[in-house]
Design a protein around this nucleic acid. Structure first.
Lengths: 269, 269
DNA sequence: CAATCTTTGTGCACGCGTTCACAAAGGCAT
DNA sequence: ATGCCTTTGTGAACGCGTGCACAAAGATTG
């Protein structure tokens, strides 16, 4: 289609919706699996099933990248792998540093998924002098003192923070000052960074808490179906109200009931 | 406001938007920190800043839970901690099992953020017989054979999968058959589960790929600002196009150019 | 007790993302 | 070459989430 497309680059190049970008790695993974099985083409329906999304959504996502795909046939697997890789910037090599080599940092260093996708762990950095020099994932841990030097010498622009929460902000500032412009943060803190720096956060306990919310809702509905006792219906198998509300309130306490009226039941008089 | 609230429970109890639920743990963390510093009250503005969100959004989020908060003053920290904990189901104890005790599984087992939030690691399970009995995080690893028994005896409803991708689907099926209804999946695969089972996925490499996309865009814009050479502008410091497009295409290849016109430059004739 | 000041709670509008549904496009069989 | 059949690409409608802006509520001060 080298014919009628001279006016769209600006619209599309920066116009790929964030939600679509977040799904591209998913498609890429599914396509890679198909590629390894030497499947030549896939329909949007098949690929959508493999990636766990709606086929219409997948087609719209691909439409932002361009018109790859042949009507009546589907998409060429290899070609699409290449296009998505290129769009995501995976046709080049991204050196990353991991800061904070505790349990999680070590797990990340050993994680095969990084190198498989064009990411190269350039260095492991830790603040503990006792860690310095120790081999983790076949690589010697380096001390925080050399952070700036490491970033600059390796041209690192992506940093992974796996430190305790208390150290994260300071580490991020040093990383950014040294030239890092993208951060993947595993520390349970909100990082404040200047404009132009991207931060993505992964918080393991948050995910569990979201699951707990839904789990509780399921249990609550079950119980509500059996008996509609407002005081003790919530919290299926495990004993509810292991925590009592704090006593630090005075006026507000008496005034406000819980949302369902089940709080008074567990509130101390 | 204890007066006119007799018709809302149904609207609210199941009406908390998913986006709000996902932010509650964030608020909870910020509030816990304030609580430890013995701060009695916070305004929506302050709390929003601490949680890294917009204050209007925070107030709207809280409004789904009920009318906690006092106009002119703010929110009572302790009271809010309790309300959010209760809403998230953290006032009860959730036993979880971790399946797959590799680097990541071990890191999760050692992760303090779980027990701090009402989650209790009930068991560590691995398929490798050599792992069985080994202590990880002060707990003996158990073999997959006993998975069902462990789930039932401990009343586990939340499972964490940290196995290789190939084993994840089968593990999930066994977990679900044994009674688990919520799964946190770290394996890079799409799990297909029956209705009523919640799955949340965390994929470390996907997060990095999203960062790489933005990183590439930054580099591309920089380069585009300097020179507007369409063939080689993309890919700042690192050499672009380390991967060449596959040769498996015939007709489609000639027909379709890249989105910016930069594909022809790296395509083999 | 009245006036003022602070901060919540929310109605409203806007924009993004999702989904439906279908016309256009291309392969394939006859 | 023609018609049929499959699948893409996308216009349009819908719904959710976000942010603004303000009225209502309560504390506080004189």
């Amino acid at each position: 289609m080298a014919t009628g497309r001279t006016h769209r680059p600006a619209t599309r190049s920066r116009g790929i919706p964030e939600a679509t970008v977040a799904r591209l790695p998913l498609y890429l993974r599914a396509l890679t699996a198909l590629s390894e099985r030497s499947v030549p083409t896939v329909s949007s329906e098949e690929l959508a099933a493999a990636a766990g999304v709606n086929s219409a959504k997948l087609r719209k996502d691909f439409s932002y990248l361009g018109s790859y795909g042949t009507r009546g046939v589907g998409y060429d697997v290899e070609y699409l792998v290449y296009q998505i890789s290129r769009e995501l910037g995976l046709t080049q090599d991204w050196p990353v540093v991991i800061v904070g080599i505790g349990n999680l940092g070590a797990a990340l260093a050993n994680y095969g998924g990084f190198s498989a996708r064009g990411f190269r762990v350039a260095a492991l950095i830790d603040a503990d002098p006792a860690m310095a020099g120790k081999p983790v994932a076949g690589m010697a841990v380096q001390h925080t003192d050399d952070l700036e030097k490491i970033i600059e010498e390796n041209g690192v622009s992506i940093g992974v923070i796996a430190t305790p929460a208390g150290a994260a902000q300071q580490v991020s500032e040093r990383l950014i000052a040294a030239g890092v412009t993208s951060i993947l943060n595993f520390a349970p803190t909100v990082l404040s960074v200047p404009d132009g720096v991207d931060v993505r956060k992964v918080d393991l306990s948050i995910e569990l808490q979201i699951l707990a919310f839904h789990e509780q809702r399921k249990a609550g509905e079950e119980a509500a179906a059996a008996a509609s006792e407002p005081g003790s219906a919530v919290g299926g198998a495990a004993p509810a109200a292991a925590v009592v509300p704090p006593a630090g309130r005075t006026a507000a306490e008496a005034r406000k009931g819980g949302p369902e009226g089940d709080v008074p039941a567990v509130m101390p008089a």
